[in-house]
């Protein structure tokens, strides 16, 4: 009995991974997309993102401290991530007060009413985004055109997005290369497919997410839009690059809390999102369907978790 040792159950080592490391990893993966939007939308992108992040963190802190009366956990990075994702899903000329309302809805209703991180059913950033889209349809759908390093915020020049033009049956002038690089109108973070794919590659290498959800969404969307849009390969490909498809598939749908837990479940979830997105884009009232598709499949996630179990070792068929 010489020394007072610590006794704990095995295992005695840990991978060193943590929730905040996962969250900051996703944030790092979002940097390329942020840089592109800074370049394309100038000061507006910076103002919107900063406001959104600060508002989300502040609301999380206030709600945890004064309403739920628990130890605030703003350092885990989840509120920052929600803030960034919310900002990436709105136009860069959105007035500050609208962003703050969006942040309040995202954190307050999307996350904290369910009990905070880990308990929410819907992706908080998307709850905020959809709330803003329904409440402020005009502001949320006047998209600024890319204007490299512009210093205009609220008075940026606006135009319809390629996706909107497609919806109205007008011809799309933008080139596929513009869509890849981000030289098109749209929400703050969704414009450059290449930057988002770089983030995807980073997250795959760091093993923050697996390939299942993004790949199944993109493949399903491609195949389905190829079928319903008259067997047009380039059109189907553009469907992947336009709007929130890449951002949604890579960063929004893969949110840990609101996506299924098994690889098989993830693929079912991804197929659902891909199908719903194209259905909404093709037949619905809105030109963009990614947010709604993800929210609908978020609602289906508990069901998928219940019925799709991991593949067990030595499973005995009954």
């Amino acid at each position: 009995m010489s020394q007072n040792f610590i006794v704990s159950p095995s295992p005695h080592v840990h991978s060193g991974n943590s929730v905040s490391k996962c969250m900051y990893g996703v944030l790092i993966a979002l940097i390329p997309a942020f840089l592109v939007s800074l370049y394309c939308f100038g000061i507006g992108a910076l103002v919107v993102t900063l406001t959104s992040v600060l508002a989300c963190v502040l609301f999380e802190y206030l709600i945890q401290k004064y309403l739920l009366k628990v130890k605030p956990s703003i350092c885990d990075g989840s509120a920052i991530l929600t803030g960034v994702l919310l900002a990436f899903n709105v136009p860069s000329n959105l007035p500050i007060w609208i962003i703050i309302i969006g942040a309040l809805v995202a954190i307050g209703i999307g996350k904290m009413t369910f009990g905070g991180l880990g308990n929410n059913i819907f992706n908080p950033a998307l709850v905020g985004r959809v709330f803003l889209l329904i409440s402020f349809p005009v502001q949320m759908t006047t998209w600024p055109v890319p204007d490299p390093l512009s210093m205009n915020y609220l008075d940026a020049e606006t135009a319809a997005t390629p996706l909107g033009l497609m919806k109205q049956g007008l011809s799309v002038e933008a080139m596929t290369t513009d869509m890849l690089l981000g030289n098109i109108g749209g929400s703050l973070g969704e414009i450059s497919a290449i930057a988002l794919l770089i983030g995807f590659a980073y997250m795959l290498i760091r093993r923050i997410i697996t390939w299942h959800i993004p790949v199944s969404i993109l493949v399903t969307a491609f195949v389905f839009s190829f079928l319903v849009n008259g067997f047009d390969v380039e059109g189907a490909f553009q469907q992947l690059l336009l709007g929130g498809m890449m951002l949604g598939a890579i960063f929004m749908a893969t949110d840990y809390v609101t996506s299924p837990m098994t690889p098989r479940g993830m693929i079912i979830y991804g197929i659902g999102i891909g199908l719903l997105t194209i259905i909404i884009r093709r037949y619905g009232a809105y030109p963009e369907g990614m947010s709604f598709a993800i929210l609908i499949m978020n609602a289906a996630t508990p069901l998928i978790n219940k019925y799709v179990k991991p593949k067990r070792f030595g499973e005995v068929k009954k």
């Binding site: 991974n17 996962c22 991180l117 840990y256 809390v257 837990m261 098994t262 991991p310």
Partner: peptide, 17 residues
């Protein structure tokens, strides 16, 4: 801290639990 349902434990479990 709270479970964030990242499913890393499911991916790691060698028995598929």
């Amino acid at each position: 801290t709270a479970c964030i349902r990242c499913a890393k434990c499911i991916a790691a479990c060698p028995m598929g639990l």
